[in-house]
Simulated assay, not measured.
Amino acid sequence: MSETQAWGFTDDRGARPGAARVPRRVVAYVRAGAALYDLGVTPVAVYGSGHDGDVYDPAKAGVLEAVGVPYLGPGRGLDEAVLRELRPDLVVDVTYDGKSPYALDAAFVERLGVPLVVLSVGGGPDLPGLLDRFAALAAGLRVVGPAAAGAGPAPEAVRSVVVGSEAVGPEIVTPVTVSPAVGPGQGAALAEFEAAEAALREAAARSGLGVLALSGAGPDQVHLARPRAWPELAWLAGLGVRLLDPGPGPGANWLTTGWEHAAGLRPDLVLFDNRDHATPPYALPGGVRLAPWNPETPPSAAAYARFFRDLAEALAP
C-alpha cells in the first residue's frame, strides 16, 4: 500500500487493490453482498451471475431485497453508464479458480477505475477460512463507522485476519482489533454458528442418514455434488453428516448424470439446489427426505448458522 492509500486489501487472486480512503459505496456480486450485509456493510447495489435473470433470485437475495438494496441484473450484462451513476468506490466479486472474478469481467471494472476485490469461495479455504476472509474485508470497510460505510447493525469484533506470520486481511490506517482463531468472528453471530454446529453434530450422530447434495438440470439430467469440492459440504462431513459421493466421472465440483444414478445411491435425505435456475428433484426413491440447499449461501456466520439449524431439523427423526 502506497503512502497515498489509506485503505488496501490483498484479495484471493493475490491482487492488492487500494484506495485513497476507505470505500463507502460498495457494489458486489449478490452472494458477496448478502454476506457483507450480515457483517455490517450494506452494498449500494448488487448484481447476479450468468445463471440469474433480471430480478432477484429469492434463494440468493437473503434480506437484500427486503432492505431495499437494488439488483442490477447479471454481472456480464451490466450497463456501464448505470454503474457509473452509482459512483461505486469498490466492487466485490467471488472466484472459484483463484484467478478470475466469477460474475463479471475484471476489464469492465478496470474501465470504471474502481478497485476490485475477489474472494475465493471454492477450491481453496475451508469453511471457517472462507468466512474469515469475508469478515476481514468487512472489518476493513467498517473502520469509518457503520453509517459512513452504509452499514446495517454494527457487528462485534472480527476474528482472524492473520495466517501464520503473513497478514492476509485488510491494511488500514485505523487499526481493527483481531485475534488468531479458526472460524468466523462476530460475537453473537459466532456464538450462534458454534451452537448450530453442535446441534448439527448431535443430529447427524443420532440419525446416520445418507445425504446427497444435488442440483436439478431438468427431467433427464442432474448435477451431483462432490462433497470434498464444496467447503460447506466438506465441513458438514467433518461434523458427522454422512454425505454420499457420486462416484468417478468428469467434473471437479459436480458429476453430471441421470436421475437414475442419483436414485441408485439410495440417499435418505436429498439437499436440493433451491436457486431459480435449478429444477426440482425428479425421479427419486419413495420416502426420501428433501431439504433445500443454496450452493451460494452468503459467506457469513449468520447465514451458515441458519443453514446448519435447518439441516439439523431435517436430519431429526
Rank of each mutant, 00 (worst) to 15 (best):
R159H: 12
L90I: 11
P285L: 12
E85V: 09
R133C: 04
D93K: 10
A283H: 10
R226H: 12
R159C: 14
T95P: 05
L90G: 09
R201A: 14
Y96K: 02
V158I: 10
V288P: 13
T10D: 05
P227V: 07
D105A: 14
A188E: 13
V82P: 00
D38Q: 00
P180C: 13
R226P: 09
Y47E: 02
E202R: 10
P43T: 00
V241H: 08
G129H: 09
L233Y: 09
L311K: 08
G238R: 13
R266F: 02
A302C: 02
D79N: 14
K60A: 13
A237N: 03
P295Y: 10
E313C: 01
L239C: 03
D89Q: 11
G164E: 09
W230Y: 12
A45I: 06
P115W: 14
A205L: 03
L315C: 11
V168P: 03
D93C: 07
E110M: 05
L209T: 01
A195S: 11
D93I: 07
L130N: 02
V114D: 13
A181P: 01
T4F: 14
L255N: 00
V92K: 11
L39G: 04
D54P: 01
E110V: 12
E296M: 09
A15E: 14
G53S: 04
L284T: 08
G129K: 04
S160A: 14
P170V: 15
P43A: 01
P17E: 11
D97K: 08
G18P: 06
F134I: 09
W230S: 11
Y102R: 13
L290A: 13
P88L: 06
A195F: 00
R142M: 03
P175K: 08
A32I: 04
G150L: 06
F307W: 08
A225C: 12
W230R: 04
L271E: 07
E80M: 11
V109I: 13
A195T: 05
R275C: 02
V30G: 03
F108R: 12
A283M: 11
L315S: 13
E202G: 03
L244F: 10
L131E: 01
R87F: 01
A199Q: 11
T42D: 00
A213I: 06
V158Q: 12
V92L: 13
R25M: 09
D52M: 03
V182Q: 08
G164N: 12
R309I: 00
T256M: 07
A213E: 08
Y37G: 00
A147M: 03
L255Q: 06
V26E: 05
P295L: 05
L64S: 06
R309G: 09
E197Q: 14
R84T: 13
E65L: 01
A252M: 00
D11L: 04
P317Q: 04
V173L: 15
A229G: 02
V30P: 04
A106D: 09
E260V: 07
P43L: 06
P281S: 13
V117I: 12
